[in-house]
């Protein structure tokens, strides 16, 4: 039944896409990610992207770890809001594109993504640039993964920016309430992946008036070309959902949300390596959002036994607003200042 629903939703997506293309006018062909880039390595669904930088952009390379539950170009959605454009102007900038995982990777554990894949990407970056360490920026669950990696491989990470990254899941707000009651065993027995449309629906569900408010805002501001451009780019990003591999999703819900193993220092990789927060040595900036309902402020604090160097900046915006809203430039500036010092 869920399989048929999946197909139905795909058809509906196609109809919506067609309708949007007709109404979006010139913005319909707007690129997904605006900074020029090339794929420098790939393995399966995953690829490593290198963004075009001026020749004087030297120094420790920056590796961006986007979230696994949506597409990476939220950090590069328009020229005016792009984080990646700003970083690439100053440093050699790389990004892990998780691609569109299908059923073929449904059996891979979460540690395959937060340890093995990041390790492979860093290996390629080290080969290309000759640098021993990288700076890292992780967004949302990508930030959680970057943090876990910095605990597992402390010698490889110099600076670490955690952009609205949940680390402690004990008081994770409404998402935790749903995660705690989610039927994980039934999910594990019946699904090879968590469909992207279901994830997108759940995010809309926890903000029930969101769609109405968005439509009303569009009605009020649709004459403004700048707003129309950003709105269209954002809608395209929202309408581009990504499936979550089943076992990784199961572990995300059980190990992180339900059992909160990371903040207790009890999280283990599939190979049995303990993720010890006390091992982190990377200089870390926690960049969180005051109105975040996905990773509330209570979730973005470091685990108690992590005594590594850390600073924190709170931006008055929401989870997505921090990357594309009116305060996104402040957030980007803070991240750049931290990385460049």
């Amino acid at each position: 039944m869920i399989g048929s629903l999946d197909t139905l939703v795909q058809h509906m997506d196609a109809v919506t896409e067609h309708f949007m293309r007709k109404t979006a006018e010139n913005w319909g062909d707007y690129p997904r990610g605006v900074t020029p880039r090339e794929e420098v390595w790939n393995a399966g669904n995953v690829s490593l992207l290198k963004f075009e930088s001026p020749e004087n952009a030297q120094g420790t390379p920056l590796l961006i770890i986007p979230s696994l539950i949506n597409r990476w170009y939220i950090l590069d959605v328009t020229e005016e809001t792009s984080f990646i454009r700003e970083f690439a102007a100053r440093r050699p900038t790389f990004l892990i594109d998780w691609g569109y995982p299908g059923t073929e990777v449904g059996h891979l554990p979460l540690s395959h993504y937060y340890h093995k894949t990041i390790m492979r990407a860093i290996r390629q970056i080290r080969k290309m640039t000759g640098c021993e360490k990288v700076d890292m920026l992780g967004y949302c669950i990508g930030g959680t993964m970057a943090y876990v990696f910095s605990c597992l491989e402390p010698d490889l990470v110099d600076h670490l920016v955690l952009l609205t990254a949940p680390l402690s899941f004990k008081e994770a707000g409404i998402l935790a309430n749903y995660a705690n009651t989610f039927p994980v065993e039934e999910f594990s027995a019946s699904m090879e992946k968590m469909p992207g449309w279901m994830l997108a629906f759940s995010f809309q569900f926890i903000q029930p008036m969101g769609a109405y408010q968005k439509t009303r805002m569009f009605h009020q501001k649709c004459d403004n070309e700048g707003f129309k451009k950003l709105f269209n780019a954002m809608e395209r990003w929202i309408a581009d959902p990504v499936d979550f591999p089943a076992r990784a999703y199961y572990e995300l819900l059980t190990d992180l949300y339900q059992d909160d193993l990371l903040s207790q220092g009890r999280l283990e990789t599939a190979e049995g390596r303990l993720v010890d927060p006390a091992c982190r040595r990377a200089r870390t900036l926690i960049l969180n959002a005051a109105k975040d309902h996905i990773a509330p402020l209570t979730t973005t604090g470091l685990p108690v036994n992590d005594q590594g160097p850390v600073s924190q900046v709170t931006i008055p915006s929401g989870h997505i607003g921090i990357t594309t809203g009116k305060n996104c430039k402040d957030a980007c500036k803070k991240a750049i200042e931290f990385i460049m010092n």
Binding site: N177, P183, E186, S190
Partner: peptide
């Protein structure tokens, strides 16, 4: 807004929803 916000935060509602998802998934399996 207030009404729907209360509803999606309501524990009983969340539990019922979880049960219905579980039943759908069992059916799918």
């Amino acid at each position: 807004g207030e009404h729907l916000e209360k509803l999606v935060h309501n524990e009983k509602f969340i539990n019922e929803m979880s049960k219905s998802i579980a039943a759908t998934m069992t059916g799918k399996a």
